[in-house]
Amino acid sequence: MKREINFTLNGDPVSIEVRPNEKLLDVLRDHLGVKSPKHGCGRGECGACSVLLNGKSIRSCITLAVEVDGQEIVTLEGLEKNGLTDLQKSFLKHNAFQCGFCAPGFTISATELLNNNPHPDENEIREAISGNLCRCTGYKNIVGAILDVAKKK
């Protein structure tokens, strides 16, 4: 049975009818046109579908849409609403990504880290992004780009 859920998406109120078995990732992508979270594994193991739920990164592929009723969701689209963030600028400068498919998920995880801990060391960065898989880069430039922001702030 469909039910209406209301939540904040990237700062804007959203009201939408969903079935309880619909996943947040599918609702964001297929019904709300938010495409930055990606389908990677469907089991919460790769981080490509990461979004912020009340400021904390979660895996939208293993979250039911009904669970976010009354909550606040932020995706990459929301982070860059007022222009590129320092983190994005650093990712760009460092050529942090190759194929780019994992980039939105890494941006979510790194944003959360820097919000909680503006000056993480390299080890804390690696721990924080270890749930995000990247098959292209070997992580070197991703870590370097986050470290750059951590040092500047």
Binding site: G47, S57, S109, E112, L113, S130, G131
Partner: peptide, 9 residues
Amino acid sequence: IASVGIRNK
């Protein structure tokens, strides 16, 4: 346990 994105939930 797992990673941040799992531990948050």
